[in-house]
Design a binder for these strands. Structure first.
Lengths: 199, 199
DNA sequence: CCTACCGATCGGTAGG
DNA sequence: CCTACCGATCGGTAGG
């Protein structure tokens, strides 16, 4: 028997997750606590957790929301480019823009959460790992298409290119967050250019 | 009035920090709690915190210990090489070995803590930032010496090289921790070779 | 370095 | 979605 309509409840759920994403981008998914969310939103703890059941499911929902934002801002903006090098270049540029002008206060959510969970065990670790792996595969697939089209050298290793592009994105996020280095986006673009022109 | 001798107390302090470094490499410095350390070491909470005063100073001491291990394993093993490219190459190789065969259960301590604190505020953030900055300066200084000696192209940008080498180290750690990818060290070496031969 | 304690907060539940 | 509660754990202190 909900005291609010389904539509209202759905809006509340969205508000909770939005707030959780903000907090998690700064302090990680473990920094998201039910009591703090309740305080921030002017709700009771029971009202918050009632939407998710338990904390792990709330963390999972938070991660999914951040994942979707990443997909929208990076993949969606590049997917209509021709496959291969043009699409891969567009992905990198959208990625750099996403990290440099982050929708989250703590910078790249995926970077924060990947490092937070890389050595832990459990469902969240597995989801983070699988979604990163998938993303690296997307990069490698486009690199392979670019190589096959002759836009990248014949002896290019798609997985190596994916590794290096990923490395650049992480370093960009670190330089921006930890050092507040405004030259970091230019460095990242320069590094991407080297990887895509010379690999 | 200590109930143990100074030497015994010093040994206890070392044991506490060692244990804290282990935990922090997996769960971050915020995962280090006084009660858990006390449990793990068969001590009382008061016995643990008495060595440090408060939790922040315990975290600081933990970070310093990890920093020292990093310096010993990476810098100390390369510092006797001739400055410039030989030393920079030796640093990268020692760095890759350090990350690949980590003395900590959760992989590269510095990577974990840098990401954990990059968007937070306070003393620990400042210490992490300053020590990373110093390390990037060491890399850039050697790159500059290598360029001046003619071992790197005249138009090399030392800070760009430092940025890219740092990126590789972080991606190596991620690939090992998150994906358990045994080919990651070879990928890192290949990437380093490209940066140092072609920049 | 211990026991015994403090107030605050954690995740979560019962009942409405 | 709320109030009122639960046991566990948090950082930390007093006193020995």
């Amino acid at each position: 028997m909900p005291r609010r309509s389904n539509a209202e409840a759905a809006r509340t759920r969205v508000a909770i997750i939005d707030r959780a994403v903000q907090t998690a981008s700064i302090e990680g998914l473990e920094g998201v606590t039910i009591g703090r969310l309740a305080d921030d939103l002017g709700m009771s703890k029971a009202g918050v957790i009632g939407h998710f059941g338990n904390k792990t499911d709330l963390q999972r929902a938070t991660f999914h929301q951040a994942q979707q934002i990443f997909t929208t801002e990076v993949w969606e903006r590049a997917k209509d480019k021709p496959r291969g090098l043009p699409r891969l270049s567009a992905i990198c540029e959208a990625w750099i823009k996403h990290v440099s002008n982050s929708p989250f206060p703590g910078g790249c959510f995926m970077c924060t959460v990947a490092t937070e969970w890389d050595a832990r065990e459990g469902d969240i670790h597995d989801e983070v790992r699988d979604s990163w792996r998938l993303w690296l595969k997307v990069l490698a697939r486009e690199a392979a298409a670019g190589r096959d089209a002759g836009d990248l050298p014949e002896d290019s290793d798609p997985d190596q290119i994916a590794f290096e592009l990923n490395a650049i994105a992480m370093a960009l996020n670190q330089s921006l967050q930890l050092f507040d280095d405004r030259r970091a986006p230019a460095r990242a673009r320069s590094a991407v250019r080297r990887v895509l022109n010379q690999s």
